[in-house]
Design a protein around this nucleic acid. Structure first.
Length: 483
RNA sequence: GGCCCCUUCGACUAGCGGUUAGGUCACCGCCCUUUCAAGGCGGCGGCACGGGUUCGAGUCCCGUAGGGGUCACCA
């Protein structure tokens, strides 16, 4: 059975890179009718951030990456938090010690730094020379028993090569002299990534390891560990890292990396998920808008490209807009809008009203937050006038006064009545339509970028429109006074 | 710097020996139009470079360059 996993560290906010890898892991598991699991890699006590795990799990669910096993849902191979599996790692480290495939090393951090510097000077690209291998076994055990702080390191072959087969890249050769005697168990008794990931992936029966390219060069260490234990290694897939505009790895400094940022900015989970999927994967027919199910159906590793994709928020915006105006239905859009209006302290008289506004605004906003910004005047009488709108108010002051009378005479502001009325007025006065529309638009919205006039008049209703014109007229007079 | 990976328009990508190198975002223009969008139509723009292999190379091989990653008791 194909079993994939995502293994985030609870060291901060949920990262888009985690979601990116998560999507591919999820899709591959689903494609094969397998399982997708989440494991929390919290073996670094120093970097642990309170609440980070919850944030990450919430973000994964928000994106629709539901997992079959995980810290909060359990599963047959738990616990799914590495900090709760320490005994396991100690056991397996001991096994390697017993087999003579690992050894205890007693260098202090300062000594290690000195060794590293020395090696660097010689032009060697790694940090430890394996000197503690020379300590006789009995002596090492005695020192350990006496409580001397130490780590356990993997005994790595000194000659030959280790060949890693990456499904996406083929065979990759590593000279064994380049593979360091990696620390497996730290002096605090916690495992390092290498030990923990191998033990857990084996015990949890992970068959396919899909992860970021930054893990590629540490794969030989893990492969050697599988060999030391006598276990079958999983299939390896290293996906390219998401890049920031300019080319560097996406980071806090170079762009928005928190999934929470995108949620709060009003991106739809489906749009983000869809966009992330296009970072490397493409549909056979070239479609860029597709559901998770469609991706699963069409997925194949030879449709995954290996160049590091630049994360372009501009295109994400476009895609989000596409979802708002074409993928979701109107009711869904209205529902999504509600929390954003509430957060802005705005209220709506009814769902029907909200939906009418949403319909009118639909082609005019790309994020939910943008809707609140641009449609504010539909939800409050206390909307501001932009400078450009004030100019229109002044220019069209007389027209506005007359327009108010024209509209006041109509029984209601249905398009069948407002259109002939406004067009008729313009013709009678021999005015271009826009000369009439712009002051009106400025008056009832405070801005010049709005939905169609007839649509707006109907939504707002006669009473509010007349009151708004009145208020705008007063506002314009005040402007004249100041000028 | 050593090692490893990667390389098609500004960005995301299609291409899997024979294509006028296609699509999407962005940008520009036109159409529509009461504003702003959306939409439609059109345009700009690319195979990093140099060697091979081949009748033929964006596609295969080698080198160079560039970019990225990694060299922790972090993951």
């Amino acid at each position: 059975m194909v079993k994939t996993r995502i293994a985030p560290s609870p060291t901060g906010y949920p990262h888009v890179g985690t979601a990116y890898i998560g999507i591919f892991s999820y899709v591959w598991a689903r494609k094969n009718g397998g399982k997708f699991i989440v494991r929390i890699e919290d073996t670094d006590q120093n970097r642990y951030v309170e609440g980070a795990e919850e944030g990450i799990l919430r973000a994964l669910k928000w994106l629709g990456l539901d997992y079959d096993e995980g810290p909060d849902v359990g599963g047959p191979n738990g616990p799914y938090r590495q900090s709760e599996r320490l005994e396991l790692y100690r056991h397996y480290a001991q096994e390697l010690l017993d087999k003579g495939l690992a050894y205890r090393a007693f260098e202090t951090p300062e000594e290690l730094a000195a060794i590293r510097e020395e090696l660097q000077k010689k032009g060697l690209g790694y940090g430890y020379d394996g000197r503690a291998r020379k300590i006789p076994r009995e002596e090492a055990e005695a020192r350990a028993a006496a409580g001397e702080p130490h780590v356990i390191r993997l005994k790595t072959p000194e000659t030959g090569v280790t060949v890693v087969h990456d499904v996406l890249r083929g065979n990759i050769e590593f000279d064994n002299r380049e593979i360091p005697d990696a620390v497996l168990l730290k002096s605090d008794g916690f495992p390092t990534y290498h030990l923990a990931v191998v033990v857990d992936d084996h015990l949890m029966e992970v068959s396919d390891v899909i992860r970021g390219e930054d893990w590629l060069v540490s794969t030989p260490i893990q492969k050697l560990l599988y060999q030391a234990f006598g276990w079958d290694e999983p299939k390896w897939y290293h996906l390219p890292l998401l890049r920031a505009p300019g080319g560097a790895k996406l980071s806090k400094r170079t762009g928005h990396t928190s999934i929470d940022y995108y949620r709060k900015a009003g991106y739809l989970p489906d749009a983000l998920r869809n966009y992330l999927a296009t970072m490397g994967f493409s549909m056979p027919d070239g479609r860029e808008i597709f559901t998770m199910e469609e991706m699963i159906a069409a997925f194949s590793w030879d449709r995954v490209s290996l160049g590091g994709p630049v994360f372009d928020e501009e295109k994400l915006r476009w895609m989000n807009g596409k979802y708002i105006r074409e993928v979701l239905n109107l009711e869904e859009v209205c529902e999504r809008l509600k929390p954003f209006l509430e957060a802005a302290g705005l209220s709506w008289e009814s769902d029907v009203y909200l939906c009418k506004v949403a319909e009118a605004m639909r082609p005019r906003f790309e994020t939910l937050a943008e809707f609140v910004e641009k449609a504010r005047y539909f939800f409050t009488e206390d909307y501001p006038f932009e400078p450009k709108a004030e100019k229109e108010l002044k220019k069209g002051f007389e027209i506005l006064r007359e327009l108010k009378e024209v509209l006041a005479e109509l029984p209601d502001l249905a398009p069948e009545r407002t259109e002939p009325a406004l067009v008729g007025y313009a013709e009678a006065k021999e005015l271009k339509l826009r000369k009439v529309m712009q002051p009106l638009r400025a008056a009832i919205t405070g801005t010049l970028a709005t939905p169609g006039m007839y649509e707006m008049l109907e939504i707002l209703g006669k009473e509010r429109v007349l009151a708004r014109i009145e208020r705008a007229l007063a506002h314009a007079e005040k402007l004249e006074g100041n000028a």
